[in-house]
């Protein structure tokens, strides 16, 4: 356990020092700060637009950070040969992989927390100090965090056997497909004139690909007039699902890494 924590801590430190991640974070923060001006352009529903825009910015920025942070993780260690130093010590490969992943998730958590604090501050300022309403938006960012942890697991898994550039597009593609197929399956299953083949394909994709749509829970928070029955149960089940899929991905990642000549 000590080894995992040590590797995770080092990974967080490395991530925070990486300029490219800081630039992405800075761009996200700038957009969060100017977001109120977009809402002000609308004659009605400026608060709704502000909420939607801010959560969208956090989600988009976090997704980019999650991918950029993790695609280089293992390949860089191999390229710089630092991995040999680590693996020559009493550190198992699975401990190294898990430590790297947890470090990436930790760095992601710090950056997302920072963006959430800025969002709450800006929203509270815009809503004349309505801190309570602003904090409810943090529910969405917590679910985004689980979503991004799942995305990071996808990228870490791929990083054990593909190059960073391929991994970037592969993980991005999986993220899009994993977000797309559940709504598509939901939409097609309600249509009677859709072929059984299309329904089966979308069902299979929804079942086997990591389902990122489960974490897009922002709609009722953006539109408070809509009522959701017991959202907490969905949050818990979706988190459970995420942990299950992350375990699967890390398990596959470990297997690939274990069989790799390093």
């Amino acid at each position: 356990m000590k080894q995992i924590i040590a590797i995770a801590g080092t990974t967080i430190g490395e991530a925070i020092r990486r300029k490219v991640l800081l630039v992405i974070l800075l761009v996200g923060l700038v957009f969060l700060i100017v977001a109120p001006s977009l809402g002000a352009l609308s004659a009605r529903s400026e608060t709704t637009i502000l909420r939607a825009t801010m959560l969208g910015i956090i989600q988009l920025t976090s997704a980019v950070i999650a991918i950029v942070l993790t695609v280089y993780m293992i390949p860089n260690e191999i390229e710089r040969r630092t991995i040999y130093t680590i693996l020559s010590k009493p550190v198992q490969r699975w401990q190294f992989l898990l430590g790297k992943y947890l470090g990436a998730v930790g760095a992601l958590a710090l950056m997302m927390l920072f963006m959430t604090i800025v969002m709450i501050a800006v929203f509270t300022g815009m809503q004349n100090g309505d801190f309570g309403r602003a904090v409810t938006l943090a529910q969405a960012t917590m679910m985004f965090f689980v979503q991004m942890s799942l995305l990071a697991a996808v990228a870490v898994c791929f990083s054990t056997f593909v190059t960073p550039l391929v991994n970037f597009f592969l993980s991005g593609g999986i993220y899009l497909a994993g977000s797309l197929f559940a709504p598509m399956f939901d939409s097609l299953s309600k249509q009677q004139n859709t072929s059984q083949f299309s329904k089966t394909v979308t069902w299979a994709m929804t079942t086997f690909l990591p389902n990122f749509s489960y974490y897009n829970v922002q709609n009722p928070l953006i539109n408070p007039s809509s009522t959701i029955q017991n959202p907490m149960s969905h949050y818990l089940f979706a988190t459970g699902y995420g942990l299950m899929y992350i375990s699967l991905l890390l398990f596959i990642g470990h297997y690939m890494f274990d069989h790799r000549e390093v």
Partner: peptide, 21 residues
Amino acid sequence: VAQGIFSNAVVLPKWQKEFAP
């Protein structure tokens, strides 16, 4: 298989009802 069953049996129905577009 476990994640597929859990996803389709537990998470998906609630998501379809409350959160799907």
